[in-house]
């Protein structure tokens, strides 16, 4: 039942080399993986990044986009630092494709990390995950405006649950405070699913989970979204709960919270000194993945925006994103140095 047949791959190799020698063309010189590629996942099994990496793996397998096999290894220790340290320490190894989010460049900002953001080079960003304000399904707030007003009445009393400390969630909560003048209390739980349970159980007042993290519970009416941090409303789709769907959620900026966009990129990295040809190879591979119907299905189902960025565009995006977040870090005094 195991499909991997390394023997036949080895038997084919001399043959392939022979043909390569016959046709000394440009494409034969291009970089190709010659042994199994390791997908380093910077979250535990079952996390958002894990689903991202495994979806890519399943698409590559299904469409046979790569000849070599893929080994997925979860290294989610230290909020993902474990995975980044692991690939950063393998200086030029093009066989360690690392899957993460913007925490690659945010983690070294807030804590002394045994790796620097520059130790890895970005290969591609494949999707943008949205953020929303969620409250308990039974809460009285009809809109985000109500919620913020209520928070202003009780400064420092309303609690936001989030995944970790000084992460994307807490950054966003600080930005909301800055934009509205309200004062919240942020409680770091371990991961988005914990933050969800605490909200569904009514132990906290709100969270800023990604759509996919709360979808199942919204369907059941246990939690409800108030607004989404994107410049325009999400695409219309099937109704999720009581004839309301993703497309019906107002943007936060229309509710008087002056944050037009806050998203988390789903990113792929290689060690900084990996050869440029390998980077190009993986960019092509991931581009092909992002063009399959299965990828579209994944982004629709998880309510992410499919957005394929590479090269200068990606560098620019990372610079801007890091700049925005850095400002919040400085304001809150979270910087490591």
């Amino acid at each position: 039942m195991y499909k991997r047949t390394p023997l036949s791959a080895h038997q084919l190799k001399p043959l392939a080399l022979f043909f390569a020698a016959l046709t000394v063309s440009g494409s034969a010189l291009a970089w190709q993986p010659e042994r199994p590629v390791e997908f380093v996942v910077t979250s535990g099994a079952g996390g958002g990044t894990d689903t991202f990496a495994r979806t890519v793996q399943s698409i590559i397998g299904k469409h046979k986009l790569m000849d070599e096999s893929i080994i997925v290894s979860n290294k989610g220790g230290g909020s993902g630092a474990e995975g980044y340290v692991y690939s950063a320490s393998s200086k030029d190894d093009p066989y360690k494709l690392t899957f993460g989010t913007n925490n690659e460049y945010l983690l070294p900002e807030v804590g002394e990390m045994p790796y620097a953001a520059e130790d890895l080079q970005p290969v591609a960003a494949m999707a943008m995950d949205e953020f929303l304000i969620w409250v308990n399904g039974d809460a009285d707030y009809a809109s985000a405006k109500d919620f913020i007003d209520a928070a202003k009445q009780n400064p420092g009393k309303m609690q936001f649950a989030g995944s970790q400390s000084k992460d994307t969630d807490q950054t966003l909560v600080s930005m909301i405070e800055e934009a509205t003048g309200a004062d919240f209390r942020y409680v770091p739980f371990n991961g988005g699913s914990q933050a969800l349970v605490q909200l569904a159980g009514g132990h906290v007042d709100a969270n800023v989970n990604n759509p996919n993290e709360n979808l199942g519970q919204w369907q059941a009416g246990m939690v409800k979204p108030l607004c989404v941090f994107s410049p325009e409303q999400l695409p219309k789709g099937e109704p999720v709960y009581e004839d309301k769907g993703w497309g019906d959620i107002p943007t936060c900026i229309s509710q008087g919270i002056d944050i037009s966009e806050y998203r988390m990129p789903r990113t792929v990295w290689l060690p900084a000194d990996a050869p440029q040809e390998a980077v190009t190879y993986y960019q092509e591979l991931l581009r092909k993945v992002s063009e399959t119907p299965e990828w579209k299905d994944y982004t629709t189902r998880t309510v992410q925006t499919s957005q394929f960025l590479t090269g200068d565009e990606l560098e620019q995006y990372i610079d801007d994103n890091a700049e925005t977040v850095r400002k919040v870090f400085e304001q809150e005094g979270w910087n490591a140095s």
């Binding site: 079952g46 495994r54 399943s58 979808l215 199942g216 059941a220």
Partner: peptide, 17 residues
Amino acid sequence: AVMMGGLMIWGLTPGPM
């Protein structure tokens, strides 16, 4: 948690529904 990740990849949404 791993199985729930699996559910998502198989196209199901884990949740009360």
